[in-house]
Design a binder for these strands. Sequence first.
DNA 1: CTACGTTACTTAACCGGATAAGCGAGTAGC
DNA 2: GCTACTCGCTTATCCGGTTAAGTAACGTAG
Lengths: 337, 337
Amino acid sequence: MKRPTIADIARHAGVSKVAVSYALNGRPGVSASTRARILAIAGEIGWRPNSAARALNDNRAGALGLVLRRPARTLGVEPFFMELISGIEDELSARSHALLLQVARDHDEEIELYRRWWGEGRIDGAILVDLSADDPRVPVVEALHLPAVVIGHPSASGSLTAVWSDDRAAIRETVHHLAALGHRRLGRVAGLPLLVHTRQRDRAFAETCAALGLDEPVVVHTDYTGEEGARATRRLLTTPRRPTAIVYDNDIMAVAGLSVAQEIPLDVPGELSLVAWDDSPLCRVVRPPLTALSRDIPAYGMQAARTLLALVSGEHATHVEAPAARLTSRGSTARPA
Amino acid sequence: MKRPTIADIARHAGVSKVAVSYALNGRPGVSASTRARILAIAGEIGWRPNSAARALNDNRAGALGLVLRRPARTLGVEPFFMELISGIEDELSARSHALLLQVARDHDEEIELYRRWWGEGRIDGAILVDLSADDPRVPVVEALHLPAVVIGHPSASGSLTAVWSDDRAAIRETVHHLAALGHRRLGRVAGLPLLVHTRQRDRAFAETCAALGLDEPVVVHTDYTGEEGARATRRLLTTPRRPTAIVYDNDIMAVAGLSVAQEIPLDVPGELSLVAWDDSPLCRVVRPPLTALSRDIPAYGMQAARTLLALVSGEHATHVEAPAARLTSRGSTARPA
DNA sequence: CTACGTTACTTAACCGGATAAGCGAGTAGC
DNA sequence: GCTACTCGCTTATCCGGTTAAGTAACGTAG
């Protein structure tokens, strides 16, 4: 009934626990015949190494930690996190590591989680997402000597290893694309202004517009929800010189913006072009389908997990730059009227 | 540098390890003054109980397992899973348990995960989602004596405890609502036909239509993706006697259906009414906003976690019925033309 | 024939806690 | 004044594995 241990195997095989341990771990110290016998018995009674016992020995947890900090309602809607998780998972399961996941309300709660998990030996490392400027998590994680990888720009990751993609390049590509179509007045519905990537996108957006001689763009910040996306769109479209194209920081806000436009009504893409950041099935099901900035998010997660595992096993890891998002042109962008 | 243990505390306090253990666990055997001294030292040097050592002792992992089996692309889009996870999390973190999460390709891989996790003592119990008819996971989990809670109807959960909500009641409410508006020809874009809840919804849909004297409804099954939702909608709308209302099994397909209708063009809700299952922000951002079947998914997850924890601690748990989804009427349903 | 190595194991100890049992000292009851 | 009991702590063991340090039996070289 209870789970078999190496002591059970030892008893069956008529040898000591240690002989069994040697045999099962493929190290010298037992004869080939004894080894075969032990392996056979282990297979027969369905033995599995107890992870707690292993962890206790070599002081490894065999798990990595991930804390998500956005409220449940936005978390669910954005495919980003789920795709990221499935990528991380993929890499971890291949190396038989587990992922400890938790949703936290704020930075303090998140930091307390790292303290606890690390202190209790539950995790070997952590992946930090949604990096903000002067992120309070960075110094804490550094002080804890908790191996960690930051998903975000190296400029704000302190001494922690960063896995990042060049959002500025993606923004440049987008603005160039819109400018080439003939747009001169652009708007941007951005995410949380505290996040590093929001700031970088904001700046790149403004700079590229300036470089191309376009009007100074109008940027409205939101909390990533559809509601605020709709509100921001209405604001942009009621300004005296309304933009002819709007770039959104996620897909749900872009869809909300599309609805707002159609309600006014404004023809998309005839009178208004729309671009979403982070492509998802959602962008393809609405009419017109949304031009979007696509990247391979699961691969991004895999890269982060791989880098962190290297760090955990003592290797020295350098920042990793993942491919920038690329513009996938669909029906929501066109030459302005 | 290395993490402090109770032996360190014992040395500082000049007592034995056992005295420290008693003091830290609030059990008798040490004087109040010694206890206070030990607690002070523990706090000072930042001691945390090593989870592996604890687990090894009382044969508990302090973690529950959850395996998701849908492909990453659909997983990300449906808010359901993320909301469920955040609910489970909420309950678990309150009782300082962890959640082990993994994405599997098929039932076999999922079953192998339960075998491994349980065999290695990594989890104390598991939550099974997406119950199918004759689900192969049920007998395996039963044979393993792995405490488990099934999210799905008790009729297919075998001896496992089920946490479920009455989908048939929700379907009945929906069909009654549409019939009251004057609809007589209904369509349904359903999910995977193998899943138990799909079958129950199918049957309830047909039965309610029959009971109300409506036409026999047309049902098309899909894999939950927007693409198939769009295709199914086109099929339904090109049948000779096309339905005047369509009920979808998730939100993304409903949005895809809305786009298809608007492209034809068919006025929603004037010429076609739409209902989505599982409300999400997505339903509110499109125009017209979608009438949807809402339920408190995080609460559902919390209930599952709570029930499983009770099971794990040896209590006898009975099936739990969560509130059925309720229809939230929005702009996508109206009297037919 | 002794000295030295291997081979194939064993015993002992450890990881960090929990638990059962033991053991002096104080003290209360009769 | 003796037993009996409680208090406050200790020593010994255990959980399930890994690792270091023996130790017989045997082969081989000098």
